[in-house]
Simulated assay, not measured.
Amino acid sequence: MGRRRTGRAKPTVSSHEPVAGLYDTDTGTCELVKDPYRDSGWILEVNGVPSSHIDPDDPTLLEFEYMRWITMLVHSHFSRDTRLRALHLGGGACTMARYLAATYPEARQVVVEIDGRLAELVRKWFDLPRAPLLRIRVGEARSVLTSLTDATRDVIIRDVFAIDRTPVALTTVEFTRHARRVLAPGGLYVVNCGDTRDLTTARREAATIGSVFEHTAMVADPAMLKGRRYGNLIIAGSDRPLGESDALIRDLLGGAVPAQIRHTGETRTFAAGAKVLDDSEAPQRSAAPQRGTPEPS
């Protein structure tokens, strides 16, 4: 998905001043591109794949629809005065963390990003909240998750991709059990699942999350749910009911890309017959995963 380039730019970086160009990172390259439709917007590409959109002037702007769907689930699950403890697995430009910091002022957040140089650049380019409001922890998502103490997070958002797929080791039932262990009672686990028209990956992820959490939900636009194209589905799990408010249904339908929600019964029907993912299917990870988003075409 990257463009052809005649040479690598050598942009300089100053604090809180993003500069368009191609940069070396620990896992390859990232490119910062001006948003052609919004003067203050930026697109971050990681190894040629669009990863994040961020507007330094507006932390509440979310250009990627799947991010809006995630925040709608979070808002329906936690009141705005909650001192939210959030864990983001996958960093990118920290767009989601920045949004939650703006809408939950008392939130305490940790973003896990495997690429230390990318994390450094994002800190320099964008006015991110500082610790203890927002910490960026350089590390591999599974290793960090398994190291965390029980019941210490209210929401865990998994948004990690290697090109167009989430590494299998971050989708298994063993990984999902760690997520539930780290969540406090009533907590919310949300994953961004990219899939093709056959929806095999989404069905298996829904089955896996449904095997660990009592309550589940899925959010996507109707074409995606019917297997008419590839794109993003949001799958969530909790030990208490989620996504059942009328306001959430209206908000999802009112977006630029109207979406629908499937609750526990419908999600289990969707996943019926799908095999739960487990660690036996996870290959040896020799390459570092990176974050990306298979945005609908």
Rank of each mutant, 00 (worst) to 15 (best):
R5D: 09
K10Y: 05
K10P: 00
P11N: 03
P11F: 01
T12C: 03
L22T: 12
D24A: 15
G28Y: 05
K34T: 12
R38V: 09
R38H: 10
D39V: 09
W42L: 08
I43Y: 11
V46Q: 07
S51H: 12
S52W: 06
I54C: 10
D55S: 10
D58C: 10
D58L: 08
D58Q: 08
P59E: 08
L61M: 15
L61S: 14
L62K: 06
L62E: 07
L62M: 15
F64M: 14
R68W: 00
M72K: 04
M72Q: 06
V74R: 03
A86M: 11
H88Y: 15
G90Y: 02
G92S: 04
R98C: 10
L100T: 06
Y104R: 08
A107Y: 07
Q109L: 11
V111P: 08
V112I: 15
V112A: 10
E113P: 10
I114F: 00
E120Q: 08
K124T: 10
W125K: 06
P132C: 14
R135Y: 14
I136H: 14
I136P: 10
V138Q: 12
V138D: 06
V138F: 04
G139H: 02
S147K: 06
D150H: 10
A151L: 06
A151W: 03
T152R: 15
I156G: 04
D164M: 12
T166W: 06
V168S: 06
V168D: 11
T171L: 15
T171S: 15
F175P: 02
F175Y: 15
F175A: 12
R177P: 03
H178C: 07
V182H: 04
A184I: 07
A184Y: 01
V190G: 01
V190M: 02
V191R: 00
N192I: 04
N192C: 09
G194S: 14
D195H: 02
D198E: 15
L199A: 03
T200P: 00
A202Y: 02
E205C: 10
E205I: 11
A207D: 07
A207H: 07
I209K: 02
S211P: 00
S211R: 05
F213E: 00
L225P: 00
G227H: 02
R228F: 07
R228H: 11
R229M: 07
D239N: 15
R240I: 13
P241Y: 04
E244P: 01
S245P: 07
R250Y: 10
D251V: 03
G255A: 13
G255N: 11
A256S: 12
P258L: 11
A259G: 14
T264H: 03
T264P: 03
E266D: 13
G273V: 05
L277E: 01
D278K: 02
D278W: 09
P283H: 07
Q284L: 13
S286K: 01
P289W: 04
G292F: 06
T293Q: 08
